Amino acid sequence: MSTFVLVHGACQGEWVWEKVKPELEALGHKVATLDLPGSGQDMTPPQQVTLDLYVEKVSDLIKQQNEKVILVGHSMGGLVITQTAEKVHDKIDKLVYLCAFLPKNGESLISKSEGEKGPEFELNEADMTLGPKLETVEETFFNAVEDEALKLASMKRCRPQALAPFTQPVIITEEKFGSVDRIYIETTLDNAIPISFQRRMNTETPCSKVITMEADHAPFLSKPEELVNHLNQVSKS
């Protein structure tokens, strides 16, 4: 059995894994999650939040585990696990990009997204945060979630996202980041990171395996059982 560390994306928190974590644990895996600084229930002021701070928190969680981990990053979490792999590559068995950003050296989320379709964000200059336009949240992030109560609850739990992690480039090397096995789980119904963009990223930075789900940008809500099955299979490969 494996140890999973699950990293959420922008505007969300560890709550996104509530349907996935217990099912993986029921299969015998160990699962660790966290709220990134300034996300979920973490009250770090957004002005203090950086990609480096994200990486520090995730690295600390990984170091607490007794074995190498399978590090999963959703959406913006792809940048976090990429930079984390550069820092603690010897503690990571596999990287799993779940409809996530997969940057090359020197790229930030904003530079990687240039010219691509994606969420419409509004900037709050006073606290240096970005938030998706409320009228677009459902169709952008949760368009295939059939449970209306779950969808509404999830929309209400989203928070504005600190801006700095969007602008900071990753600095990675083939010797460290490049030494870790990479798997990409792509989602064909995704309106936040369209499938064409996902496929461009996992082609530019090749992965040992690409798994395709007919899901939206929230497969942990719309297709949790299928996602758990894929992660379980990843642990056996």
Rank of each mutant, 00 (worst) to 15 (best):
L123S: 12
L123W: 11
L123Q: 10
L123F: 14
L123Y: 15
L123C: 09
N124T: 14
E125H: 02
E125K: 02
E125Q: 08
A126I: 15
A126P: 06
A126Y: 11
D127Q: 06
M128S: 13
M128L: 13
T129Q: 00
T129G: 03
G131I: 09
K133A: 01
K133P: 02
K133L: 04
K133S: 03
L134C: 08
E135K: 05
E135I: 07
E135H: 05
T136W: 00
T136V: 02
E138H: 01
E138Q: 10
E139F: 05
E139D: 12
T140Q: 06
T140A: 08
T140V: 06
T140G: 00
T140W: 04
F141L: 01
F141V: 00
F142I: 03
N143V: 06
N143A: 09
A144F: 08
A144C: 14
A144M: 14
V145F: 09
E146Y: 08
E146L: 13
E146N: 13
E148D: 09
E148Q: 12
E148G: 05
K151G: 03
K151A: 02
L152R: 10
L152W: 06
A153L: 03
A153R: 01
M155H: 00
R157V: 03
C158A: 09
R159V: 12
R159I: 12
P160H: 00
A162W: 02
L163C: 08
A164M: 10
P165K: 06
F166V: 01
F166G: 03
F166T: 01
T167P: 08
T167D: 11
T167A: 14
Q168R: 10
Q168M: 07
P169H: 05
P169R: 02
I171D: 15
I172V: 15
T173S: 15
E174G: 11
K176A: 15
F177A: 15
F177C: 14
F177V: 00
F177R: 01
S179N: 08
S179V: 10
V180F: 05
D181P: 14
R182L: 10
Y184A: 15
Y184S: 15
I185Y: 04
E186I: 14
E186T: 10
T188Q: 10
L189K: 07
N191G: 07
N191S: 06
N191T: 04
A192Q: 02
P194E: 04
I195T: 13
I195P: 05
I195C: 15
S196F: 11
F197G: 08
F197E: 10
Q198R: 07
Q198F: 07
Q198L: 09
R200G: 12
R200A: 14
R200Q: 13
M201L: 07
N202E: 09
E204W: 09
E204S: 14
T205R: 09
T205C: 11
P206G: 07
P206R: 01
S208M: 12
S208D: 12
S208K: 15
S208I: 09
K209Y: 08
K209M: 11
V210I: 10
V210Q: 03
I211A: 02
M213Y: 06
E214C: 07
A215S: 15
D216P: 00
D216M: 04
H217M: 05
H217I: 00
H217G: 00
H217S: 04
A218D: 01
A218V: 00
A218H: 00
A218T: 11
A218K: 01
A218R: 03
P219L: 07
F220H: 05
L221H: 00
S222C: 02
S222W: 06
K223H: 15
K223A: 12
K223T: 14
P224Y: 06
P224H: 06
P224M: 07
